[in-house]
Computed example of a mutant assay.
Amino acid sequence: MQYTVRVKPGSRRGPLVEASDDALIVYVRERAVDGAANDGVVRALAEHFGVPRSGVTILRGHTARIKRVEVDE
C-alpha cells in the first residue's frame, strides 16, 4: 500500500508516526543530512506497520519533506 508521508526531521518527539487527514506525519530524531532522516523514516514506518525494514520503500521525495512511500503488507 502507498502512503503520502510528511517528515519532521530533527524532532525531539521522534521516532513517532501520526495520522493526519491527508498524510502520515513521521517525526524522526535524525537530521536531514546524508540520508539519515530517510533511514529514520524507514525504521519508524517499519516499526509502526510491523514489517521488516526491507518492506518499506521510498518511491518519491528522497530529498523532500513530503514523500511517497510504499509499505508491503
Rank of each mutant, 00 (worst) to 15 (best):
G14R: 13
D72V: 06
R68P: 11
R60I: 07
A44C: 06
R6H: 09
P9E: 07
M1R: 15
D34E: 12
D22G: 09
R12Q: 10
R13N: 03
G40H: 01
Y27F: 13
P9W: 05
K67L: 06
R60Q: 15
V51Y: 13
P52D: 11
V17D: 07
I66Y: 14
G14M: 07
F49E: 00
P9G: 07
D39T: 08
I66D: 15
A19L: 09
D39S: 13
D72Y: 03
R68N: 12
L16S: 02
D39K: 14
G61A: 02
E18W: 00
Y27L: 09
N38S: 11
T57N: 13
V17L: 09
E47I: 04
L45C: 01
A19D: 10
V56M: 10
K8G: 00
E18S: 12
D34Q: 14
D21K: 15
R43D: 11
G55M: 01
V5K: 08
G50S: 07
G61N: 03
E73I: 03
A19K: 14
E18H: 02
R43M: 08
V41F: 04
A32N: 13
V41Q: 03
A37Y: 02
G61L: 01
V69M: 05
A36V: 05
A32L: 02
V41Y: 03
R31S: 12
M1H: 13
G40R: 00
V69N: 01
L59F: 01
T57E: 15
D21L: 12
D22H: 11
I58N: 10
T57H: 14
E30S: 12
V17C: 08
S54E: 14
T63Q: 13
E47M: 06
R12Y: 05
D22V: 07
K67V: 02
A32E: 08
R6P: 02
Y3C: 01
A37Q: 05
D22E: 11
V69E: 01
V5R: 08
M1N: 12
H62K: 15
G14K: 12
E70Y: 13
Q2M: 12
P52W: 10
T57Y: 04
Y3M: 04
P52N: 10
R53H: 14
E18L: 09
Y3G: 00
T4K: 10
V42D: 06
V71C: 08
E18D: 09
V69G: 01
V41N: 03
I58K: 11
V51Q: 10
L59N: 10
V26C: 01
A64L: 09
L45D: 03
D34G: 08
D72Q: 12
G55V: 00
S20Y: 04
A46T: 01
A64G: 11
L16F: 02
K8R: 13
V42C: 04
K67T: 05
H48C: 00
I66V: 15
